[in-house]
Design a protein around this nucleic acid. Structure first.
Lengths: 262, 262
DNA sequence: CTCGACCTCTCGTCTAGATATCTGAAGGAG
DNA sequence: CTCCTTCAGATATCTAGACGAGAGGTCGAG
């Protein structure tokens, strides 16, 4: 076992009342912040840290798990623990739903993916009728059943977002909206053709840790939260014509909004 | 040691290749989801779970730490592990910066706090001149030094948000903006009085896990992400007159936006 | 040269304790 | 009755190992 290069990490303070595993985590965190470990670089192995600090392996693992829960590092079984690179974030423009994009037949996701030079993909498309939940009824008016359109979005093969649109059946049933592929411009273009002229959207943005199924679907690394957006589309009659429930990998997104000051 | 009530939790599947501590976490998660443990209720103690499942204490602790990292539970030293209550979330209205609130002399935070019947507080107010960072220079134009206004917001005594406003010195120096208390309506009202008529704001929203100092300042429980908002204010000349960097406890906030469809 | 067996390093899971610290309740001193 | 001590129960930290499993390199058989 080769020892760690001297000076890379410091030593423990036995007089401190700060737990040993936290001190170790602190040192690693500081070393990462100072660039002593580059993005994507491998941290010292558990055995090396065990030797360097003179503690048991569980204590070292405890320290490493802190860094992972903070999203600073991620472990790869059989390889090591690595500094998590900050992925190039993608910008979700505020004019995502502008008329001009619909007119060009492009969906919001396609527009954004092309803007950063990435390859967009859509996945696991399920369209079906479902019973409405109380929450959805409150948002959509009183529809008993709704049309649900579920899909997953990928960027260069990596899943970044899942979205489910809910529409009242009396609007969507028997229209292209109920087809897997609703045609150019997406369902918003179809809604306008059906006479529901869109007026505005309301978005609610939350952040939280993912549920286990979300970790799986979005292939989330430990310590990555999700951004949960619920968007309601209103037509010019003031009726809610669609609710879109979106869960995004927080390390892949920056949401951009423009607010008037008046 | 009293045994657990029968039926509250199931048993392990020794043939499964799913790790034991994950199976235990799954069972607890499911029990919480089904309401067998109410919000704020105490989960079985480590000793009880150890007995019930016939595993060592470290394994049980491992399972409980998963629930905490998911934000589903939080441990209290010497008391037990409790189901985290979903706190009543606060709504950040899209018209937060509307002219009418400034005219009434109310800040955005005060307006929102009153809307949910909570007692707002502002804390640790620091106003000083600082060197500008490259990022800030890019956002604010080219100011070499900036005025920084740091503060922490509390709701009913609980810290929920920290915010730092940065303003170019040529605008702010020697004005009420450089005072700890800028007067009614806050700095936006002062900016308008100084001839900088506000035109619009641009907000960038990110979510991530908190850094250790943010955990401390916002008294965040483990497994709670933060929402990071950077807002830039533009005047009618198109000049950026203020950048506000805000870090919010994600379990205390829902951000609401209204987007035009045109 | 190619491919597969094997070997080593690495992280993943689990056990069975020991000691420390915090909380809340019970009980005694005043 | 009030205050303080004591104690039981709970989580926090740490040790010292054992075995499992994935990744990647070495090296010999073919």
């Amino acid at each position: 076992m080769a020892a760690l290069p001297p000076g890379l990490l410091g030593t423990l303070d036995p007089t401190s009342d700060r737990a040993v595993f936290r001190q170790i985590a602190d040192q690693l965190r500081e070393a990462i912040a100072k660039g002593r470990f580059a993005e994507g670089a491998k941290l010292p192995s558990e055995a090396e840290l065990t030797d360097h600090f003179g503690v048991s392996r569980m204590t070292v693992r405890n320290a490493l798990s802190i860094l992972q829960s903070e999203g600073l590092a991620s472990a790869e079984h059989g390889r090591g623990v690595f500094v998590r690179p900050r992925p190039p974030v993608r910008r979700l423009a505020s004019d995502r739903f502008a008329q001009r994009h619909r007119d060009q037949g492009k969906s919001g996701f396609t527009v954004e993916a092309e803007a950063v030079g990435s390859r967009p993909e859509v996945d696991s498309l399920v369209v079906r009728e479902e019973r409405s939940t109380p929450e959805m009824s409150a948002r959509l008016g009183s529809a008993r059943k709704v049309l649900a359109r579920r899909r997953r979005y990928l960027l260069d093969g990596k899943p970044v977002e899942t979205a489910t649109s809910y529409l009242p059946l009396d609007i969507a049933r028997g229209t292209p909206i109920a087809e897997p592929n609703p045609g150019p411009g997406g369902i918003y273009a179809r809604l306008e053709e059906l006479g529901h002229r869109l007026d505005h959207f309301e978005e609610e943005v939350r952040a939280r840790m993912p549920a286990p199924d979300e970790v799986k679907t979005l292939r989330l690394a430990p310590g990555v939260p999700v951004i949960h957006v619920v968007r309601t589309a209103f037509d010019t009659d003031g009726r809610a014509v669609e609710v879109c429930d979106t869960v995004m990998a927080a390390d892949a997104y920056v949401l951009a909004y423009r607010l008037p000051a008046t």
